[in-house]
């Protein structure tokens, strides 16, 4: 089994009276696609917001080991030290709940997408991907000074950034629309562009909030391929929130199920799908049976046609 990348421990998030996440613990392993599913309002997006620093958790610990493993001893030592992160021969360790959001993206290298797409809609698709490489480019431009003078080192760095952006546009099939404003793109394309933008920050963990929303089954299949390739070819671990079971059950290595902010089940896709608690709270009774019936119906209808 691979090492623990992110350890969520006893996470609690309260909003004036409402407990959105309640004493939640789970782990995401390096090289895995870990899915977070559950009914509407179960607290999935809230967990993301805690991990990426947009909310400060009411309680709990979020240990993130960019390299190496988040082993209990080191995490405990770091917690006691009061620091945000530690660098050791075994690798970097960060306590995300202590870091501001932009540092989580920059230092811990956690990237995310948003449930209600947040692209820079007045900027082109290409610009969106170049902005994502901000920190690397800032360094290359000597905090703007070299850039202002147009030194060759900066020019090279910029060219590389554009090439990388172009490669990502190619990969998500948007090369032809590179110079169109992101706001002009159809919904499904915007979703993929947002994933590419997150990937351009060079993350260790990619948090995707409903990437398949608004895609039809065929497009979801394409998304599956993309996410698998991000995991396998780019070596980036993924934390995935999704209601489309054709995505979750296809590509996840591990599934965590939330309901009312608590973990109600956890395991492989096959296990979770069969768990009566999950069926009752989320999937709905006889989901499998209905899916099978649906398939048969299509088949039958298809057979009837010439």
């Amino acid at each position: 089994m691979s090492a623990v990348l992110l350890a969520v421990e006893r996470l609690t998030m309260r909003f004036s009276g409402l407990t959105a996440v309640d004493d939640l613990s789970f782990e995401a392993r390096r090289g895995d696609i870990t899915a977070l599913i559950g009914p509407n309002g179960a607290g999935k997006t809230t967990v993301f917001n805690c991990i990426t620093g947009f909310y400060k958790p009411t309680r709990g610990r979020l240990a993130f080991a960019r390299e190496g493993a988040a082993d209990a001893g080191a995490v405990a030592a770091l917690t006691r030290s009061g620091a945000r992160g530690a660098r050791s021969p075994a690798g970097d360790l960060h306590l995300l709940e202590r870091m501001p959001d932009h540092e989580i993206a920059r230092r811990a290298r956690v990237a995310r997408t948003f449930q209600n797409i947040r692209l820079f809609s007045g900027m082109t698709a290409l610009e969106n991907l170049v902005v994502a490489q901000h920190n690397a480019l800032m360094r290359a431009s000597g905090m703007t000074l070299f850039g202002l003078l147009g030194l060759p080192g900066w020019r090279r760095a910029e060219r590389r950034a554009v090439e990388r952006a172009a490669a990502w546009l190619e990969r998500i099939g948007l090369s032809a629309r590179a110079d169109d404003p992101a706001g002009d793109l159809p919904y499904g394309d915007q979703r993929r562009l947002e994933i590419a933008r997150a990937m351009c920050t060079g993350p260790a963990l990619l948090c995707l909030d409903e990437p398949a929303a608004g895609l039809n089954p065929r497009e979801s299949a394409g998304l599956n391929k993309l996410l698998r390739s991000i995991r396998d070819d780019d070596g980036v671990s993924i934390l995935l929130i999704e209601h489309d079971m054709s995505v979750v059950m296809e590509i996840s290595d591990h599934v965590v199920v939330l309901d009312y902010g608590r973990k109600i089940s956890e395991g492989t896709p096959a296990f979770v799908r069969g768990d009566p608690k999950v069926i009752a709270a989320y999937l709905g009774v006889d989901d499998e049976a209905e899916a099978a019936r649906a398939a048969a119906e299509i088949e039958a209808a298809g057979a009837g046609a010439p």
Partner: peptide
């Protein structure tokens, strides 16, 4: 980018 969407900026490490 900041003018367009500040939250997205922060998620990109800006």
């Amino acid at each position: 980018a900041l003018r367009e969407d500040e939250i997205a900026c922060r998620s990109l490490g800006i």
